[in-house]
């Protein structure tokens, strides 16, 4: 258990937990603002972003792709805002139009350009490669304090850690304006709060979380974590602070339980192979939501 666990499991577990929390935190506000689909939109437009990043840089490096993905996410956010305002359509429609169009453009780009050297396929985009993020330099628990071994940690861990920290800092510092403008936009404006800027900042932070998480764990987790833990948490409590706390708890639970079940669940059931951790994490988050929908103490819609 010891050395194997440190080398094979600890990094994917931590990355899974950080990705889940980084998406679930802003997800609370997105769900309450009826913008939950933003996570879906962002994780789709990451594809054209990666392709363009590759074409511009000419190499299949991580940074061009990350920058391309982030830029695409921001373009998508602006497009959604623009379509909503100019076309006077509801947010859901604007998001749907944006992410399908950009995703389709990404597929065309991919076909037309020589990207065969890039490790980019649908499967990777969906499930990520959580299980492959192993810590080769680790020899046991002692490696956790061994600087040389720590230097060999997968770079995805650093990126998702920075993203998660950024998300936590944003939610912490912007808590009051976020809460007021989410609940009552008109009142927030009447207090002089920059409501539009707050809304855009929330989406941009969500985009950064989504791109960092996508890089490590694929889009299934991103989409699920933006919606399932916050939606489940809403069914457990009637207070915003408590909802956000519960959503973090559910995100961690999904990541840990999903990872363990994916690795060992099939074996316990007598099957030979383990299944995709990303798929299992998303499934667990869905099950948590189902349980809360049936038994959550705050599930009764108030009239």
């Amino acid at each position: 258990m010891g050395a194997d666990f440190v080398a094979l499991s600890i990094v994917p577990l931590v990355i899974g937990v950080l990705a889940a929390v980084a998406c679930a935190l802003p997800g609370n506000f997105l769900v309450l603002r009826r913008q939950a689909l933003i996570g879906d939109a962002i994780s789709h437009v990451v594809l054209p972003g990666i392709v363009v990043g590759f074409l511009v840089a000419g190499v299949a490096g991580t940074w061009p792709m990350l920058i391309g993905a982030t830029a695409a996410a921001l373009v998508a956010v602006l497009m959604i805002e623009g379509i909503q305002r100019l076309g006077r359509v509801e947010p859901g429609a604007a998001m749907g139009v944006t992410f399908t169009t950009l995703f389709a453009a990404g597929v065309l780009l991919l076909e037309q350009s020589d990207t065969s050297s890039v490790h980019l396929d649908v499967e990777h985009a969906l499930y990520g490669n959580l299980e492959s993020l192993i810590w080769i330099d680790a020899t046991g628990w002692g490696s956790l304090v061994d600087l040389q071994a720590l230097a060999g940690l997968p770079p995805e861990l650093t990126r998702i850690s920075v993203a998660a920290l950024g998300v936590v800092a944003f939610v912490w510092f912007a808590w009051r304006p976020l809460a007021v403008s989410t609940f009552d936009e008109g009142f927030a404006r009447s207090m002089g709060l920059p409501v539009r800027a707050i809304g855009i900042a929330l989406v941009v932070v969500s985009a950064l979380a989504a791109v960092a998480a996508f890089d490590a764990v694929g889009s299934i987790i991103v989409i699920a974590m933006f919606i399932c833990p916050p939606a489940a948490a809403r069914l457990v409590t009637n207070r915003l602070v408590a909802q956000v706390a519960w959503s973090v708890g559910f995100a961690v639970l999904s990541a840990v339980a999903g990872y363990v079940l994916a690795g060992y669940g099939p074996i316990w059931l007598g099957f030979g192979n383990s299944v995709s951790a990303a798929g299992m994490i998303a499934t667990v988050s869905g099950l948590i939501l189902a349980v809360c929908a049936i038994a959550g103490p705050a599930r009764h819609a108030t009239t």
Partner: peptide, 28 residues
């Protein structure tokens, strides 16, 4: 504002809504 302008299903208590009125004083 008009009562119908907000979602009353929002997860918040009466006292929390009133505290929003102190937002300027409390700051960030």
């Amino acid at each position: 504002p008009q009562r119908a302008s907000v979602d009353w299903d929002f997860p918040t208590r009466v006292i929390d809504v009133v505290m929003m009125g102190l937002g300027r004083e409390l700051g960030l």
